[in-house]
Design a protein around this nucleic acid. Structure first.
Lengths: 217, 217
DNA sequence: TTCTTCTATATTGTATACAAAGTTCTTAAA
DNA sequence: TTTAAGAACTTTGTATACAATATAGAAGAA
């Protein structure tokens, strides 16, 4: 995607995530041109791209509508991530270079640094490092297709919401998982790497479930 | 995608699959307009869509290029299919309705009918029924996202090529797998369903490997 | 000759006008 | 009052013109 299209994509996406465009909303191209200050051509490009990432659904000759998510969808996304990220970790055992391992370690150290600081934890900073760790691992798995698939999966609105629920304790545990994955890679133990990564995603699902789905009344 | 865009998508895709547009080819929008007899707007739409399906890669301000596949990619696609289709089969155990099961059975019967006929087997007809079986199973799993993901995975050029290598024996075995999956669903045994589906995909990988990657000189 | 820079050309990116399809509202008949 | 048909309007789809960017080639300096 190019300049104007990217701009439109990012503006529309953030409006969807913020709730300005709730599920089922009909996104009209003409209105979006004034919102994004670009012409309809890049707007349409952005909408197609958002559809590829499952943010919206395009019905030919009818229009573009914001997709709505059920709790089944949340379950699905976590399960698919468990499978695919587990596979990525397994492949990384075979494909990762010493440089890859070093880079992964750096991200772990950065998160530890955040944890060691006093006061409320900087969740945004953690998320940035966390994202870097995971993407690096996908890349280290050596499969561009796997990376592309996972990129789309974790871009999902449900995943974007998950993060708000993390406590200091959760983050500490997540980083321990990261370190264990690195160890498994160093030990060339693909089953271990895969298993830890699966646990890692399942733990995230648990945090999400507690925070958003249960109603402790 | 709409009328003109779909037309362009299908024409360009078939040219890629046929080898008319080999890997790394620079697909120029202007040239494609004469080939597809539509304007550049739907051509661009088709190219974006082809990029979403990994047929081509778009580099901003540079152009669109046909992606090239390595044998690692083939391995990857089969492995991811094994994971995701296995998951689909597992979910189908929980979600499938009696009508779904009936429909799946019909496709199995159709394939048996093909096998019972004399003379060389109609591979194209088998493929059609096979595709229907798999897609029905994805749909029965109840996850639209999983369906969308798998649809893109099996659309890959490498997968499209696989099919040419099937013998009568291979097809018979594949249909036996199909029937066993149905049985597992009826028995509400998700582990069995998943396991058979994984075997099913691994067997396909084996056939592919024998036919295209080994060189029995 | 070789390298750099500038210009010409080719190609992609964006805006806009017009066409086609869908939606809504009005009006007339049952 | 309800339904059906049709016209007016809205929205998406397609073509095309123009702008921005990248590429290739030519001219000039080292």
């Amino acid at each position: 995607m190019s300049k104007a299209g990217k701009k439109a994509y990012s503006i529309i996406r953030s409006r969807i995530l913020s709730g300005d465009f709730p599920p089922k909303t009909h996104l009209k191209e003409e209105e979006l041109t004034t919102l994004c200050d670009v012409s309809r051509t890049p707007i349409r490009e952005a909408l197609r791209s958002l559809a590829a990432d499952y943010y919206v659904e395009i019905i030919p000759n009818r229009g573009t509508f914001v997709t709505d998510w059920s709790s089944d969808d949340v379950e699905d996304i976590f399960n698919m991530r468990m499978l695919l990220e587990g596979y990525a970790a397994q492949q990384a055992v075979v494909k990762a270079t010493p440089e890859d391992i070093e880079e992964l370690t750096t991200y772990c150290n950065n998160i530890d640094l955040l944890l060691s600081q006093d006061g409320p934890i900087d969740v945004e900073a953690f998320l940035a490092e966390n994202r870097l760790f995971h993407r690096k691992l996908w890349q280290a798995s050596g499969s561009k297709r796997l990376s592309a698939l996972l990129l789309r999966l974790v871009a999902q609105p449900v995943v974007a919401r998950t993060v708000m629920a993390y406590t200091r304790q959760d983050i500490r545990r997540k980083n321990e998982h990261h370190r264990e994955i690195i160890e498994a890679i160093k030990a060339k133990d693909s089953a271990w790497a895969r298993s830890i990564m699966s646990s890692h995603i399942l733990a995230a699902r648990h945090v999400y479930t507690l925070a958003f789905l249960d109603d402790p009344s």
